[in-house]
């Protein structure tokens, strides 16, 4: 069985993602469409929140991916720091804008959901607040990447920022919860028995989650390929200059 580290080789990665990316992209489109159409049009209205509740099919998957994208960046940064695989650093770079967009979707849908329930577009609810803080961390990470010219220096510095930022993002999350009492409803999906959400909702929600995960994966693959091509161009230019 081939080792996963083989994909640390840019050429191997390009070769594999050549056929993987279209597949993932199509799967993402199909699964997300199925999940959202099922969720929006083939589920009953909630007895308390009416049809407003259906925004959950956008809100929860995007919020989930907003956090997962950061965790993926953290893992990729660690791999770069420890094993110095360049594809890993470039994947972390490619994941950041995707994570930023996911966070923005989670914030916007959260505000849209909150408006009829709370009567206002924005409430400093601890969960919305921690997503807003996460948004700021994404901005800082992307800004640092874009302001460093040398790619290896950029990879090193952003990796350290990602590690330190993860700790502070976690602390900020606890601070946000400490800071105010929650207005948010409890965790939307519970692992405990006596689930609060009916299967009629859960099935399309799970499908949407998978769909968003696939969208994220497709974006990361696409972004990483772009970054690898940019590096290749740079390498060719360097060789040109030396000869």
């Amino acid at each position: 069985m081939a080792s996963v580290w083989e994909y640390a080789n840019p050429r191997k990665f390009m070769h594999t993602s050549d056929w993987l990316l279209p597949g993932v992209a199509w799967a993402a489109a199909v699964v997300t469409t199925v999940g959202l159409v099922w969720g929006f049009f083939f589920t009953p209205d909630d007895f308390r929140q009416g049809s407003t509740v259906k925004i959950v099919f956008l809100h929860v998957p995007s919020a989930l991916m907003a956090i997962n994208a950061w965790i993926m960046m953290l893992v990729a940064s660690l791999i770069w720091v420890i094993r110095r695989h360049h594809v890993s650093a470039l994947a972390a770079k490619a994941a950041a804008p995707a994570g930023l967009v996911m966070t923005a979707i989670a914030l916007i849908t959260g505000a849209l959901w909150g408006q009829p329930i709370w009567g206002t577009w924005w409430v400093w609810d601890p969960r919305l607040t921690s997503f807003l803080i996460l948004f700021l961390f994404y901005l800082g990470y992307i800004a640092l990447w874009s302001s460093i010219e040398d790619p290896d220096t950029g990879a090193d510095l952003t990796a350290v920022l990602c590690l330190v930022g993860s700790v502070f993002a976690l602390l900020s999350r606890y601070a946000a919860f400490f800071w105010t009492q929650g207005l948010h409803q409890g965790a939307s999906l519970s692992l405990q028995p006596g689930t609060r959400m009916d299967w009629a909702y859960k099935a399309p929600l799970y499908i949407s989650m998978v769909g968003f995960g696939l969208i994220f994966l497709a974006l990361v693959l696409l972004g990483t390929r772009t970054e690898i091509r940019a590096r290749r161009m740079k390498a060719l230019l360097t060789r040109e200059r030396m000869n």
Partner: peptide, 27 residues
């Protein structure tokens, strides 16, 4: 230390540091 030597370091510094200040500020 992260932004030393960068040309537009000042503004970037604020963007990087302010989110890290959140827990200290809250408590």
């Amino acid at each position: 230390a992260l932004t030393v030597g960068l040309k537009r370091g000042g503004l970037l510094l604020s963007l990087l540091v302010l989110p890290l200040y959140i827990p200290t500020l809250v408590y």
